[in-house]
Amino acid sequence: MIRLAQVSKTYGKGDNAVHALRNVSYVFPAGTFTAVMGPSGSGKSTFLHCAAGLDRPGSGSVMLGEVDLATLGERRLTELRRQRIGFVFQAFNLIGSLSVRDNILLPPRLAGTRADRAWFDQVVAEVGLADRLHHRPGELSGGQQQRVAIARALVTRPDVVFGDEPTGALDTRTGAEVLALLRAVVDQHRQTVIMVTHDPVAAAHADRVLFLADGQLVGHLDRPTPAEVAARMTHLDDRRAARC
């Protein structure tokens, strides 16, 4: 579904150059849940931004199906993101003046299309918002706002959903509920979810956890426990501290 081939990204030039990604290659199969972790400055955000078409790699290719994102102009890339990619961010990014219903329906409206009513009703029911559609974001809890964001990400039936620290602003119980929703999206609808997180408990909900360090993929764990993820992160942090 998503294929990165020899992707590199450098910010700045000369002595000020920062090599955020270095020849990263990876294939994300359809219908899987992948978490991406790494120490601060490891390239996680750049990895997500390049994979999701929010930023362009300096070299290499990012393929969504058979489409090379690097070959698209800004307008076509924007259209593709609206139609085929969903986003769930830590900050929710809801529009306060719109109702829950209108926030969820924003992507198809921006794309000039109509949402499938049956699918909309199913998504709303699954995220538990059927009785909140006419509320505004300010009238909801943080967990409910993130459920709105998840419904918004799913309403266009995208090929892949990207999560950028989707539980970072939530308490433990509410975060667990949101992660359970993302897990259900994969298990029940064969959706593809790629999530950047710093939380070993959140990462343990994924099928595979990828580890980045210094802009490179340095390993993975399949169906790990939170303790296994934490141990690997400690090793990466120790290795980074030793280099410093």
Rank of each mutant, 00 (worst) to 15 (best):
V193G: 02
T197W: 01
V196D: 00
D159W: 12
V201R: 14
A202G: 10
R183Q: 14
V155P: 11
L154P: 05
T197K: 00
E165I: 04
V201F: 11
R157E: 14
D164C: 06
A202Y: 03
A151K: 12
A176R: 15
V160Y: 11
R190V: 02
D159S: 15
I194H: 04
D199L: 03
P166K: 08
R190I: 02
Q188E: 15
D199M: 02
D187F: 00
V178Y: 09
R190M: 07
T172G: 00
V186W: 04
E165Y: 12
A206E: 01
L170E: 08
V185I: 00
V178A: 07
A169M: 09
L182R: 05
V201H: 14
V161R: 05
D187C: 03
A203N: 09
L179T: 03
L182V: 01
D164R: 02
R190L: 07
M195H: 10
T172F: 06
T172V: 04
E165G: 09
P158N: 10
Q191H: 08
G168P: 00
A169C: 04
T192V: 06
V186K: 05
V160E: 11
A202C: 10
P200R: 04
P200Q: 04
G175L: 06
G175E: 08
A184Q: 14
D164T: 01
D171P: 10
L154E: 06
A180G: 13
L179Y: 10
H189T: 03
A180W: 05
I150F: 11
D164Q: 06
Q188A: 13
R152D: 10
T172N: 11
A153W: 11
L182E: 05
G163C: 13
M195D: 08
V155K: 13
V161H: 09
A151L: 10
L181G: 03
V201K: 13
D199R: 03
V161W: 06
A180C: 01
L181P: 05
V178G: 02
A184V: 00
Q188D: 15
H189D: 10
G163W: 01
L154N: 04
Q188W: 03
T156G: 13
D199V: 01
Q188I: 00
G168N: 09
R157Y: 13
A206P: 08
V161N: 06
F162V: 01
D171G: 10
A184N: 14
P158E: 03
I150A: 09
R183F: 01
A184H: 14
V193T: 02
A206Q: 03
V178L: 09
A202L: 05
V186L: 03
H198V: 02
R157M: 11
A184P: 04
R173L: 09
H205Y: 15
V160S: 12
D159Q: 15
Q191L: 06
H205P: 06
